[in-house]
C-alpha cells in the first residue's frame, strides 16, 4: 500500500461489520455500545463489552484503530450509562472515544486522561472559537465537522484552529442542526439526542396501497413511492409534503453524501480523516464502501484516480442518488 493520503474512518454496527471494515482496508473503525449512549441505538445493533474487546483485538492485530462513539446527551440526573460506557471503552483498550456532551467530556478528562478524545459531529462545533473551547477545557484532539461546511469553510477552519479534522465522505445526510435535531421526537416521543435513534424502527411502518408504498413515522405518513421509484427512510426531514397543491421535498431530498469526487480538494483543505457514515447498514455495505474508498485513496496516493469510482457507489445511496452536499455549497 502507498503512503496514507487521508485516514479512512469506517462504521461498524456489529462485530462482523467491524471485521469487514478492517479486512476492506479501514485505518480506523468506529462503533458504539448496545444502549442509549450512542447515536445509532437500533435493535440488534452495536457491541457489548466482550464484543468490543474482541473487536479491538482483531483490529489491533491488523494495524487498525478502534474509536468508540459515546455521543448522545445524558438525560437529566442519569449520567450513569454514559460514565459506565466510558469506563468500559477505556478498559477494552479503545484508541479514542468520540464524545459530544460537555459533562461526558469532563468525566472522560478527569477519569481517563490518557484516553484520546474526539469531538463528535453531534457537538456541532462549526467555528474556531467553539473548537478552541473544547480543546482548551477537554484537550480534544480531533473534531468531526458538521455536514454544513463548504470545502472553503473547512480549509479556513483547519487553518484557524490547527486541530485534526475528520469530515464525512459518504452516507446519509439530513438538514440537521447536528446534535440539536428533535424533529422525529415530535412524531415518536423519543429523543434522537438522548435515546440514540432518529426515526426509530419501532415507529416506522410501510404499507402497500394501490401499487404504491406509503411510509410513515408514528401516525404520520411521510412519503409515497410509485412502483420502481427508489425508496428512502421515513425521517421527517426527508418527507414529501404537499404545498400549493404539489408534493415535494421541502427540507431535504432522499440522497446520500458522496465526496469521492472531491477527495483532492479535501486533502488540500488540510483535512486529516474521512468518515464513512452507516453503522446501521450491513457488512456488505461496509465492505463495498470501505473497499472502494481504500482503492481510490491508494490510487490518489500514487497520483492516479480511478474515474470509474465516481459512479460505482450510487447504488448503495439512499434514494439511489448522491450529492457533494454542503462541500459545494448551494442554497435553495
Amino acid at each position: 500500500m502507498s503512503a496514507r493520503y487521508l485516514e479512512l474512518v469506517c462504521p461498524a454496527g456489529t462485530p462482523a461489520a467491524l471485521r469487514a471494515a478492517v479486512d476492506a482496508g479501514a485505518d480506523a473503525v468506529y462503533c458504539g455500545f448496545r444502549d442509549c449512549t450512542n447515536a445509532r441505538n437500533y435493535p440488534g445493533l452495536n457491541f457489548d463489552p466482550d464484543e468490543l474487546r474482541e473487536g479491538i483485538a482483531y483490529a489491533h492485530g491488523r494495524g487498525c484503530r478502534v474509536l468508540v462513539a459515546i455521543n448522545t446527551f445524558p438525560r437529566a440526573g442519569d449520567a450513569g450509562p454514559w460514565h459506565r460506557a466510558l469506563d468500559q471503552a477505556a478498559a477494552a483498550g479503545a484508541d479514542a472515544v468520540i464524545l459530544a456532551d460537555i459533562g461526558v467530556l469532563d468525566y472522560a478528562t478527569r477519569h481517563h486522561p490518557g484516553l484520546r478524545r474526539h469531538l463528535s459531529v453531534q457537538a456541532s462545533a462549526a467555528n474556531a472559537p467553539s473548537i478552541a473551547f473544547y480543546r482548551q477545557h477537554f484537550d480534544v484532539r480531533r473534531v468531526v465537522l458538521p455536514r454544513v461546511l463548504s470545502v472553503e469553510d473547512v480549509a479556513q477552519l483547519v487553518a484557524e484552529s490547527g486541530i485534526e479534522t475528520e469530515v464525512f465522505a459518504f452516507g446519509s445526510v439530513g438538514p440537521m442542526s447536528e446534535g440539536r435535531c428533535f424533529l422525529s421526537s415530535y412524531l415518536t416521543g423519543l429523543s434522537p439526542t438522548s435515546e440514540g435513534a432518529c426515526a426509530p424502527a419501532s415507529h416506522v411502518a410501510y404499507l402497500e396501497r394501490d401499487g404504491r408504498v406509503l411510509s410513515s413515522l408514528g401516525e404520520v405518513t411521510l412519503n409515497s413511492f410509485a412502483r420502481g421509484e427508489p425508496a428512502a427512510y421515513p425521517t421527517p426531514c426527508k418527507g414529501r409534503y404537499v404545498t400549493h397543491g404539489r408534493a415535494s421535498y421541502l427540507f431535504e431530498e432522499p440522497v446520500a453524501l458522496n465526496a469521492i469526487g472531491i477527495l483532492p480538494e479535501l486533502k488540500a483543505a488540510g483535512v486529516t480523516a474521512l468518515k464513512i457514515e452507516g453503522r446501521q447498514r450491513g457488512r456488505a455495505y461496509v465492505t463495498h464502501i470501505v473497499g472502494t474508498f481504500r482503492r481510490v485513496l491508494d490510487a490518489l496516493a500514487r497520483g492516479d484516480f480511478p474515474a470509474t469510482a465516481l459512479d460505482e457507489l450510487r447504488g448503495e445511496a439512499e434514494g439511489g442518488r448522491d450529492t457533494f452536499g454542503a462541500y459545494r455549497k448551494g442554497w435553495r
Binding site: 440539536r180 448522491d322 448551494g330
Partner: peptide, 23 residues
C-alpha cells in the same frame, strides 16, 4: 446553531446526481 446548506432542487440541482440504480 448550524443550519443545513444541503442542496436540493434549484440553484444547486446540478450537484445532485441521479442514475437509475445499476442492476
Amino acid at each position: 446553531m448550524a443550519i443545513t446548506t444541503e442542496v436540493g432542487s434549484g440553484a444547486a440541482a446540478g450537484t445532485v446526481q441521479s442514475l437509475p440504480a445499476p442492476p
